[in-house]
Amino acid sequence: MVLEVSRLCVSYDNTQVLRGVSFTLGEGIAAVVGPNGAGKTTLLKAISGLINYEGSVKILNKDLSSLAAEERAKLVTYVPPIVDVMPDMSVGDLILSDPLIDRELLEQYVYLFELSTLLKRRLSRVSSGELSRALIVKGLSRNSRIIALDEPLSHIDMRFQLILLKHLRTLSKEGKTILIASNQLNPLLNYTDKIIALKKGETIFTGNTTDFIKTNTPEKIYDVKFETILKDKYIDLIPTP
């Protein structure tokens, strides 16, 4: 197993955000879904070693808390959602401000996510989708074993969503473990090997997409009825009023 999480608990100021989350992940893509405030971001930050937690997180059989920062950064990267940045920073400054990135990989990603013409532009003048692409490029260029992306699909357009998901699938086949926290079940469901559904800080489901739908989990987590459409193995969930 690449990632083993057991009885993970996190509290902020006496409010418990994660209440004993456990799961294991091998290579592949895992989607972390759940309503707003379910603890998705907290879970990703905890397994990236960015916040204090109780319970245990093991990466390749090593305890996360015993790893030095540099070693940890090589194993796991957290890609934040859109952030507030210094207004006159440029896209180039943003993606180059990391000593751990692989320059060759970075160049490929800049090309893949079409940022080459934006490198000189200031972040206060790019759209949220472009900023999101820059953050994704920065995170992927670290080339770490586990990549935890927080809401990567929320700001980028449909074409880049597909470019990102297809590329993540390639990476997962090359042996990476990828976690995506998102509520964009479509198209996400069609690209994941495993789904971890959170509600109020607890795991209410872990398993594959077919079981996710069979057990009616989408309705349980969002309190909305869904109609499932299956076409050439492509799953689409449509909320019904």
């Binding site: 930050k45 990236s48 070693g49 960015l50 030095a68 920062a69 540099e70 940890r72 950064a73 990267t77 957290y78 934040p80 952030v83 940045v85 210094m86 920073m89 400054d93 943003l94 401000s97 990391d98 000593p99 751990l100």
Partner: peptide, 13 residues
Amino acid sequence: NLQVSDDFVRQLG
């Protein structure tokens, strides 16, 4: 990285 996000700073230890 303080100019970008505290999370990046934490990732650098």
